[in-house]
Nucleic acid binder design. Structure first.
Lengths: 348, 348
DNA sequence: GAAGGTAGTTTGATCGATCAAATAGTGCGA
DNA sequence: TCGCACTATTTGATCGATCAAACTACCTTC
């Protein structure tokens, strides 16, 4: 079992000291080009790779991000986190960062994991998903000065403009506004919104997108809009029931926009094949059954998260501190994927 | 910013040397119970946590597993890997292991990543998914003596009994056999199999499950079975077309079993609401539309993978070497999830 | 009671890198 | 020519743990 080469070996071959090798890797600008070339040749020749753990021990940095895998795959929309994770890993890789997973049973447990991972120098920053109002995790991370970024804006009052931490989010308002407008343009008038009960940061934001678009259109009164504003917990069955009840009460519906593909599928089953429905998240289900849906640009979200955490240029995870002048958040715009509906009708 | 406590600090408080502290953590049986108690108290008092990188540097072990995130979410079945990943992370956590992600564009690139991650002592073992016949990755890992386990059995000749590496897999034969038998018991006779083109290790295995069950039943001839044996690439549209063609050719079909939920959904759209269909993977889509499906027990797969990699007891990743006497693989049995079909019919 | 054993604990060396300070080499103005 | 600033490179110390060997008591055993 041959030993792996170290900086010392590389230095020996290149005829320089170990520190010069280190400098070539970490601060090339300090090294004279001729020397650098020699060292780089030696590195290539030996196939040298820096030993990550040794570097971490010395620098107390891990170049690794921690991200929690959600306790339960959230039914139909589970793939959203999955896709985000993929985009994040890929982009982190390009910046020389690794992504480490962990699980936790609840926010308190998650905070314990934060401690564990950071004290062991396993990770030096976190990406949080599914944040909620008054989230103890963000509080803890801020207090303990741990770099992090959230996917999901902070929903407290005014946090949007003077956030206490870095965040990236998708502009749900804009997505629903676009979807609704597109249906209005194609002739629909009475468009229902099928969403979650308030308060829900994400949900209320999306609802406003629909409502604002409808209000701009001006064809319906506020009272009529209230009637078309459905609220139920997420799920195919729930969505279906809600829409069914609305139809049975004699209200006419030209189209439906919704807060999730699950709800949208439920709506689809209730309204039959001739009423357009737009979902949210563009899950595989939507693609499979030909459901139009609003897609979150997860690759952009991942890119934004890393930019915030690292600063535009660097490779170092600094988090909050870095962003003194730059904006502290990113709001990316989703886009509507329009599909020809193929197939689904509801009976049973 | 206070320094984190080290073994030395703990030792100072407990009135012992650093090595004794280390022994309490790693080889408690060497330490006298009274001493151990003192040390443990000191650890608790200081909130001491071992520094992972330092330990790794010294031991040349990382207690971390690497797993590649698939380049593309495989459409509708993407969530399978996702669920597996979750189960793996959770179980690894309980054993004190971490899971690190990486991405790769192709098998060669993946091998480069293996090198990188292992040389840097970032990970000391891998979990491979979606292996295929003659996979260069397994070859490389074996040659370089890197511990690993695959999710998916090796499909070469006879590898099943004398495998060159550790593996866990789901018994697709059994799943399809159970599904088919269940349909036969409920009165169906002419059951079609909708699967992928041969050769496909996984696919052929599942097909055999169907075919063996049908043959045991004895109602149909081999020629009739051939007629009901559909093969197409994965996808809702493809599945639908294949079944549609079969029906148009005048063949009667009482039920359909298939190799994936995508194909099953396609079949559903082609056959209408009254013909039972069974899918595979029990994806959220199946749950959403009320499609019966065969579920892979991914938690068992993850548990099995770790047992093989670590040996029944240990916390150390040893892989192949450990398993000298124990079995070198696990084959877990999937189970049929039966659902009342709700809703889907196909027109367009 | 001296030699040998054993359980429990301590000390010195080490893993592979980077930091901080020291040392050589270079150019330039007075 | 001397000295000062500046660049390029080297040397010594260190990060926090574990390994290997050494040391202490305390027991046996002949």
């Amino acid at each position: 079992m041959s030993q792996l080469p170290t900086v010392l070996d590389v230095g020996r071959i290149a005829g320089v000291s170990r520190q010069t090798v280190s400098n070539v890797l970490n601060s090339p600008e300090l090294v004279k080009p001729a020397t650098r070339a020699k060292v780089e040749a030696a590195i290539a020749q030996l196939g040298y790779r820096p030993h990550a753990s040794a570097r971490r021990l010395r620098t107390q940095k891990s170049s690794t991000l921690g991200i929690r895998l959600d306790p339960m795959t959230n039914g139909i929309s589970g793939s959203v986190l999955d896709r985000f994770l993929h985009a994040l890993t890929e982009r982190a890789d390009r910046r020389g960062l690794r992504v480490m997973l962990f699980t936790a049973t609840d926010p308190q447990d998650e905070i314990r994991q934060f401690t564990r991972l950071r004290d062991g120098a396993d990770v030096d920053g976190f990406v949080l998903t599914s944040t909620f109002y008054g989230d103890p995790r963000t509080e803890w991370l801020i207090e303990n000065n741990v770099p992090f970024v959230t996917f999901g804006r902070p929903w407290g009052i005014d946090d949007m403009n003077d956030p206490r931490h870095l965040w990236v989010d998708v502009d749900g308002w804009s997505g629903l506004h676009e979807g609704t407008t597109s249906l209005l343009n194609s002739g629909a008038v009475r468009i229902a919104y099928l969403g979650w009960p308030s308060p829900s940061g994400t949900g209320d934001d999306r609802r406003r997108g629909w409502r604002d678009a409808m209000t701009e259109d001006g064809a319906l009164s506020a009272a009529e809009l209230d009637e078309l504003d459905l609220r139920t917990i997420d799920g195919v069955g729930q969505g279906r029931e809600a829409v069914k009840r609305l139809l049975e009460s004699g209200v006419q519906v030209d189209a439906v926009v919704s807060a999730s593909d699950s709800l949208a599928l439920g709506a689809l089953l209730a309204v039959g094949p001739d009423v357009p429905v737009i979902g949210y998240d563009n899950t595989p289900v939507a693609a499979a059954i030909g459901l139009s849906s609003i897609e979150q640009p997860l690759d952009d979200v991942a890119a934004g998260a890393l930019q915030l955490l690292l600063g535009e240029s660097g490779r170092e995870i600094v988090g909050w501190q870095s962003a003194s002048t730059e904006p502290r958040h990113r709001l990316v715009t989703p886009r509507l994927i329009t599909r020809e509906r193929s197939t689904v009708t509801g009976v049973r």
